[in-house]
């Protein structure tokens, strides 16, 4: 295992931001730390980077304890939410920074900078001022800067959260491709599950300072460990499994679990209609209970039939 966290606890005074977290990241693996804001995921990331000291527990790299190894000797790259580019340096100057710190000679440095700018899709930007770049471009430069010295681990702290939605979705796909091409070992912190599931080989769900579930994205998505995790992953209604024809205990329903379809087994009345960017979301009353559903355009007050889509159903536990 490349990175190994052994029961890490980070305390600020009396409150523990991170409690007894153990997690490992294999060589070349991308792990996402997913959780609501304030769950301690950024603190954990900063602890790994060496910017915070754990109150107890150990951060290890290839079995070597990193306690006492200062930030600048850990060879971990870090990408902040809002880039944090050096405003007094050009795009190339930013990307070259880590190489200069490692005393890479000029010729090789220039070559590496150009190849990285190409990798992040910013050919020809080398001499631009970073203050002239858009948010998305800045974030690409930040990524190139972190990757340039070939860090043994890349830490990304909400790398796409500061961008608007369309750009975020585009960049998430780019970033996933990029990290795989560079065969990077990476830990991504995010509160956005789309981002986490797009990027990661494994997802770790964090809640109140603890990791509550770790697993491949599909597994975490379809069987969250508890109701709270299920809610965080988009389930808004919890019913017995029999409601959707499953024999297991409780299941959580996402809006996509119920779809308006004339041949569906359930019947309800449309209470509200909300237009989302790529679908219509309905609030439907079935047997006196309110459910969310998706569907073609209907009017409020219409009586509709609903089909069950098991992709939108999550088994709890």
């Amino acid at each position: 295992m490349a990175l190994e966290l052994d029961s890490i606890t980070v305390r600020y005074g009396q409150t523990a931001a991170v409690s007894d977290v153990s997690l490992s990241v294999a060589d070349g693996e991308i792990v996402a730390l997913l959780g609501p804001s304030g769950c301690g995921k950024s603190t954990l990331l900063r602890t790994i980077a060496g910017l915070e000291k754990p109150s107890s527990g150990a951060v290890r790299w290839d079995s070597a304890d990193l306690d006492g190894v200062p930030v600048h000797r850990r060879e971990f790259g870090l990408v902040f939410q809002d880039g944090q580019l050096f405003p007094h340096r050009s795009v190339a100057g930013n990307v070259a920074f880590g190489l200069r710190m490692r005393a890479v000679d000029r010729e090789e440095r220039d070559k590496r900078v150009l190849s990285l700018l190409e990798l992040v899709g910013l050919e020809g930007y080398a001499d631009r001022r970073v203050t002239q770049l858009s948010g998305g471009e800045q974030q690409r430069v930040a990524l190139a800067r972190a990757l340039a010295p070939s860090p043994r681990l890349l830490l990304l702290d909400e790398p796409l959260s500061a961008l608007d939605r369309a750009l975020r979705e585009q960049l998430a796909v780019d970033l996933a491709r990029l990290l795989r091409e560079a065969a990077t070992t990476a830990l991504v912190v995010t509160h956005d599950h789309d981002e986490a599931f797009t990027l990661a080989d494994r997802v770790a769900i964090m809640s109140r300072g603890r990791i509550v579930q770790v697993g491949p994205p599909a597994e975490v998505w379809s069987s969250p460990v508890d109701v709270e995790t299920a809610k965080f992953l988009g389930c808004n209604k919890f019913v017995p499994g029999s409601f959707v024809g499953l024999d297991s205990g409780r299941v959580g329903l996402r809006a996509t679990a119920l779809r308006v379809d004339p041949s569906g087994p359930l019947e309800g009345i449309v209470l509200e209609r909300v237009h989302r960017r790529d679908h219509v979301r309905l609030l439907v009353e079935i047997d006196g209970e309110e459910y969310e559903a998706v569907g073609p355009m209907t009017e409020v007050g219409d009586r509709v039939r609903l089909e069950i889509d098991l992709d939108g159903v999550a088994r709890i536990g």
């Binding site: 980077a49 910017l51 600048h72 870090l78 944090q84 972190a146």
Partner: peptide, 26 residues
């Protein structure tokens, strides 16, 4: 911004180098 110094540190700059590369120019 403190995170600017942290960014420099994660890229391998020692505290003294951070001062020279970040604080001093800014």
């Amino acid at each position: 911004d403190e995170r600017l110094r942290q960014a420099a540190a994660t890229l391998g700059a020692s505290p003294l180098r951070v001062w020279r590369e970040v604080d001093l120019p800014l």
